[in-house]
Write a protein that binds this DNA or RNA. Structure first.
Lengths: 194, 194
DNA sequence: TGTATACTAGACTGACCTGTCTGTTTATTT
DNA sequence: AAATAAACAGACAGGTCAGTCTAGTATACA
């Protein structure tokens, strides 16, 4: 093994392809055949790694969640040392995402919309990401010395979710900018009451 | 004709059935056959009134938009005469919706998620509802004597959308209550800034 | 009463879907 | 070199999908 870069497993290739195609076309509308074609993998390989399309969707969402959180953490780490600025950075990150041409919206929101059944594993995967985000933002609030971190975190996350959802429907980044302004007001209000 | 209640047209029956089934199972996952069965209507009747499934979806979303706005207007009319309370009432309405067992989320948000193509008529129908909501809430803000009604309206709508989207993913009404608290803070801040 | 219109039931087409099966080839390990 | 495991291509089954077609029935209007 000459290089440190381990070549991607078939499993990873499948998840990569699935994420791209689900993102472009939705979950129900994207077929297995298209996924294996893009991944360059045989159908039986897919069904060896994942028992069903639903399992693949769940695995893809789980990895998307890990990637998104890791990406967010590193960007926030690099953004500023001021804890309040770090809180606002989640909106800057969202703004860049929404500005991207071809941005189709939040995968977790779309998954929860397509798989409405709350007991469904796909819906649960989306809900898990929400919980992880709340945990992360609560920590950021805690670092900022807020009295009730979980409460402010929820307020900011509702704002964040709304910004992304509104941008998904309307296009553009206006909702995100608006949300950033609101976020600052909410943070200040919490500090003042604190 | 003894009664004033005109019997519903086949078209209306189809839209009613479609809204119920789309709400329960999503747009792609709900088949034409299920819709006509629930509506008690022949398939050819559907294709006489609507040229395609997509047209039916658009018509259903358009009527949902009209109904939702009319319902919201009448409830707000009946809620309070204080303009600030009327603004907050949109969150009370959302809270009652989310509390309903079997609530599956916002139809427009789900539609925009399933039909990602911005040029698609379905996506446009969802975006139209967003624009109508903004117009309506801007008027409420204007009635409240706010300096920049469109700006506060967008802030409140991002909050409103985020509350509904978060509730769709996580279940429960916590995000809506949190959003209501945030809304009051944003309104006060706007007033203070005058 | 005759005619046009709206609706009905259901068969049908062709495409696409998920998931399975088979037999072959490649890669790794012993 | 032999054996084991993984991945291959592609046919196949069984089902569902959107949408069309046909032929018959009910309803309203002249």
């Amino acid at each position: 093994m000459p290089a440190q870069t381990t070549k991607p497993t078939k499993r990873d290739q499948l998840i990569d392809a699935a994420l791209e195609l689900f993102d472009a076309g939705g979950f129900h509308a994207t077929g297995i055949d298209a996924i294996i074609a893009r991944a360059g993998v045989a159908k039986m390989t897919l069904y060896k790694h994942f028992g069903s399309k639903e399992e693949l969707i769940v695995a893809a969402l789980d990895r998307q969640s890990e990637d998104a959180l890791a990406c967010m953490k590193s960007k926030i780490e690099a953004s500023s040392s001021d804890p309040e600025e770090r809180l606002l950075a989640i909106f800057d990150i969202a703004e860049k995402q929404c500005a991207d041409k071809g941005w189709r919206g939040c995968a977790f929101l779309r998954a929860s919309g397509e798989f409405g059944d709350l007991d469904c594993a796909v819906h649960a995967a989306a809900a898990n990401h929400g919980a992880r985000m709340h945990e992360f933002v609560s920590q950021l609030c805690s670092d900022a010395g807020v009295t009730n971190p979980a409460c402010l975190a929820q307020q900011l996350l509702v704002l964040h979710t709304g910004a992304i959802a509104s941008a998904q429907i309307a296009g553009g980044t206006d909702p995100v900018c608006s949300a950033r302004t609101s976020a600052r007001i909410l943070i200040d209000a919490t500090r003042a009451a604190g």
